[in-house]
Write a protein that binds this DNA or RNA. Structure first.
Length: 157
DNA sequence: CCAGGCTTGGAGG
DNA sequence: CCTCCAAGCCTGG
């Protein structure tokens, strides 16, 4: 399989994905769409349905540098939950500022859920637009936490 | 080569 | 409560 790029919708935004098999090279939010497919799990995720993003890999997590460790720590944050820049920094052994800059340069948002990393005092930042971060967290609160609660009560199926 | 970025906790006014 | 600062990484200019 060759490397392909495609996009899907998330609210008013398009999500462009460059990927091959289960390895994701790039994800970015844009106002315009593209022709081409995206991985099934990302499609489900963007549609607000339960999705298993752990079945995908990101190039961002390959290697042993501080930033790749940060990206792996961020991937471990469960859907519907958040961690602060400082918490991630402590896990990896660096300072919050470094986590912030790693998030700003995250090549694969969603696969590496940088929107789940928030400031101690508020939301923190997100590019290209903070409203995406809010919408993603909102959607996850709804989709992931509700699904987990239902599972616990055994009221689904 | 160096500035600056999705932060934070502490010091001091 | 507020401002100021250092700490640490790394890409883009």
């Amino acid at each position: 399989m060759a490397i392909v790029t495609g996009s899907c919708r998330f609210g008013l935004w398009y999500v462009h994905v460059t990927w091959q098999d289960n390895l994701v090279y790039r994800v970015r939010f844009a106002r315009e769409g593209l022709d081409g497919p995206v991985p099934g799990e990302i499609l489900r995720y963007c549609a607000g349905r339960p999705a298993d993003l752990s079945s995908l890999e990101s190039v961002a997590t390959e290697g042993e540098s501080t930033s790749t460790k940060i990206y792996r720590a961020v991937r471990a944050i469960p859907c519907g939950e958040t961690a602060t820049y400082g918490e991630i920094a402590r896990i990896v052994g660096t300072v919050p500022r470094v986590v912030g800059s790693a998030m700003a340069r995250n090549p694969t948002p969603i696969v590496v859920p940088c929107h789940r990393v928030v400031a101690k005092t508020g939301l923190g930042g997100f590019s290209p637009d903070l409203e995406i971060k809010e919408a993603l967290l909102d959607m996850e609160r709804h989709v992931c936490l509700d699904a987990a609660h239902q599972e616990m009560r055994g009221i689904n199926r």
